[in-house]
């Protein structure tokens, strides 16, 4: 779904739009106004974290913004000239998030953003995402298999089953109906979906 939104895949039927723009026709405009992290992040391995970000900015057609500040925000303050090839999985994940936000996008699309991060990193990223939304007005669309994580970050949660968004609800409403946690809600939605399929068959 994220790939469709970013124009990496073309819809076989129908259309996809981001910020009111068509994902195929207005692809360049969408890419300019969104930041993304999809699948395992890929970098220019022999370059440092800062050089990777500067290169990204150049491709995005932006001036060299404060790369060091962004690296500090994601928890990579002292990487200096260290090449990305020597980074751990967690550091690469942090750098991918830095790359997604450095050009100040309006929409941030993140696929499993806390994969490979330790508990401290997960907490820091959670705080960063909140800050981006509340202080910089960014909209974040993220996917995750970690239900507790989604519950703590998201304002609105959609569940995809069999390639379809089967339910989309405010997190607050879920909390009221399912005080025991997201897992019960998730299992209820999935079971309802399966029952619906069986009846349909």
């Amino acid at each position: 779904m994220f790939k469709l939104l970013l124009g990496l895949l073309k819809p076989s039927a129908g259309t996809a739009s981001v910020l009111g723009l068509d994902s195929v026709r207005d692809n360049a405009a969408i890419l300019r106004r969104t930041g993304s992290m999809i699948e395992t992040p890929v970098f220019y391995e022999r370059l440092s974290a800062a050089e990777n970000l500067r290169l990204h900015l150049a491709y995005m057609g932006q001036e060299d913004s404060d790369v060091e500040t962004v690296l500090r925000r994601v928890g990579l303050p002292d990487t200096g000239k260290q090449p990305v090839s020597s980074f751990s999985l967690g550091m690469r994940q942090r750098l991918a998030i830095a790359r997604a936000i450095i050009h100040r996008p309006e929409v941030l699309i993140l696929d499993e953003p806390v994969n490979g991060l330790d508990p401290v990193g997960i907490k820091e990223m959670r705080a960063l995402f909140r800050e981006l939304v509340e202080k910089e007005g960014m909209t974040i669309l993220l996917s995750s298999h970690l239900l507790s994580e989604v519950e703590q970050i998201a304002d609105r949660i959609g569940i995809i089953a069999g390639g379809t968004v089967v339910r989309e609800t405010d997190t607050e409403m879920i909390r009221q109906k399912y005080p025991d946690g997201m897992e019960n809600y998730f299992m209820t939605v999935i079971n309802e979906d399966r029952t619906g399929e069986i009846i349909h068959e």
């Binding site: 970013l6 692809n27 360049a28 890419l31 699948e39 890929v42 057609g61």
Partner: peptide
């Protein structure tokens, strides 16, 4: 492979 995602993520023709 995965490098193509990066190449196509920039707003450049």
């Amino acid at each position: 492979g995965k490098r193509a995602v990066l190449a196509f993520s920039y707003p450049v023709s």
